[in-house]
Amino acid sequence: MARLARPTSPAERSVAALLLLVLFGIAGAVLWLQADFPPDKYRATPAAGGTVPSRPDAVPLPVPDGATALSAPETFDARTLADKINGRAELYLANGFVSLRCRRFTPHDAPGDWVEACAYDMGTFPHAFAVFGTQRRRDAVGLPEAGPHAYRTSQALFVAHDRHYLEVIASSPSPAAMTLAQDFVQAFLRDHPANGGQVAEASLFPLEGARADTLVLLGVNAFGSPDLDHVFTMRYDVDGVEVTAFLSRRTDDAQALALANGWADMLLRYGAQARTPPADIPGSRALAVLGLYETVFAVGPVLAGVHEAPDPGAADVVALRLYQALVAARPQGAAGAPEPAEDL
């Protein structure tokens, strides 16, 4: 069988080279094609366990000047939120979450950087404020140009604005990325002029000794009690001791009183010791729980108190300030001081 192969001619060789090139070309084309598919093709908004009406009204996200969108906007609803922020979804769902829209952008002048903007539609400002406040980062620095409820960290911006809560997270703390993040926030604020974004309860807290930017709204399950919702907290400094004061406006006086008693009774059931309440606050109750001190009382329809103070004296100081502020804030017609509650 051994036969001397005829030497290949130059023409044959060049045709062979050409054909090899063609094959390489086809392989290249196929490889190029496989990467070329619409970004949301495999991420189409599914119906989780049912036909969910699509939400054409999901928050529109502006593309800031000088930036390019890296992806199509992704939209999540209550059923799919956990796909995006698994673990934190409960907080949002408990606070009236409506929808979330996310998109990534890259600045023209720093193509390696990007920011991801997430706009949570929380339905109302208090809900937006609640998720804003409860997640306040330790290294927060105020961001007044984005309104009273906005702060920045080294690598992200957080804003509660109208019914929206914004999280804009940059890929790196680089100036280019952070500038883009700010630009996005400004564009978003421009597109969504606020209508009503104030927390009325904020003004009820006494100013004396209050730490800046510590107002937090606990939408549900405050202090681990299923009965306590819509509770505002603010932190105070009493001679270097940090004390958390809280208040919550209820529907009527009776409900506020009942909640105050219920909270104190619940603590007692869980092993708290009753202690002498501050004499200047009629009807108040004071307790000690594992070396922390609680005070709770009601002023008209407002439930108020001090939570987990490390020192009983500081607790009483803040409780009294809070009580006086609440009494001062009561409408004149409401008999100046709250009715003493005999049964407390």
Partner: peptide
């Protein structure tokens, strides 16, 4: 390279 070889490469490729 001989044409038959390139043919075999092509067949294998496809």
């Amino acid at each position: 390279m001989r044409t038959v070889t390139i043919r075999r490469i092509s067949q294998g490729f496809f």
